[in-house]
Nucleic acid binder design. Structure first.
Lengths: 150, 150
DNA sequence: CAAATAACCAACTAAAAAAGTTGGTTTTTT
DNA sequence: AAAAAACCAACTTTTTTAGTTGGTTATTTG
């Protein structure tokens, strides 16, 4: 599991979709404006999210993207995996071609860490984020309210 | 907490130090050869590790670097913090200048994740890595043995 | 004391990854 | 027919990471 700003963009965009996509599909142009992410960059991200079967697209006017599943069934880990096609964290991924053992010693460390991050993010759904459940300090319901009214 | 290859390099180098630095200081030239990391890049990393009070340096022939504390008292999180001067994970770090609330919603997510990663890595000392304790699959004692004999 | 060793330092360069741009096409609705 | 929006590929810019160059300073050893 790789953690970059790209993954954060993707989660933010999917969260936007979860919040605004209840009634009709949401266009990337809208997300672009609301989240201040370049449209073409969003296109690239959503191409991957679509391949990952996390969103469905609707073409033509009034079209856009919809979550492919219920909010409660889409997890942050999936989003990041779809978008950050997880490159190996280790140099010597099982190939055993790490001539010096130290690399292997840390290998296990990174592997383990990677698993833990994945587990953590696998437990948090878009619904959790919308409800602001499942994590630290609260943004409060009114924050979400503002978003919906926006 | 930021997780890049730079941090991995630093942990690997510190682990090399923990293993080979029992008797005398270890020169960066040695670490460079064993771990296949460019000497000057190591110099840059060790400048930061020294500022972070994780290593002591000894100049002149026979000199090099030594752990500033016992292996059991140096933790992976410290190494990464020293080297990857943790840039904020969030765009709107407390400043409250995130005009749209979604950013703030994910903010808490990343903050929480960051904390958890930090906690995890704060619990793993260099001694743990040398003994290959505290994480997943084992490399075995013989691996470490090879290293010491190298 | 001279030579060698190794830390220390700054500025530069190269390579890779991330982010954004451009200029389209295709599909669908109104 | 026109407009909206997905879809697509190739390119450019920016940022980060990694490595290079060319030194100086401190310390040890022959």
């Amino acid at each position: 599991m790789k953690l970059t700003t790209r993954g954060r963009y993707a989660v933010t965009a999917m969260l936007d979709l979860a919040i605004h996509g209840e009634q009709r599909p949401v266009s990337l142009a809208d997300i672009s404006v609301r989240q201040e992410i370049s449209l073409s960059y969003l296109e690239q991200l959503f191409a991957k999210l679509r391949r990952g079967a996390l969103v469905d697209s609707v073409r033509g006017p009034g079209g856009g993207y919809r979550l492919a599943h219920d909010r409660r069934a889409i997890f942050v880990a999936q989003i990041i995996d779809a978008v950050d096609e997880s490159v190996d964290v280790t140099n010597c991924q099982g190939k055993g071609n790490c001539h010096h053992g130290e690399v292997c010693l840390t290998h296990h460390l990174w592997q383990d860490l990677s698993d833990r991050i994945h587990d953590f993010l696998s437990g948090i759904s878009l619904a959790d984020l919308v409800d602001n459940r499942g994590h630290g300090t609260s943004g409060g319901v009114d924050t979400v309210q503002k978003l919906i009214l926006q």
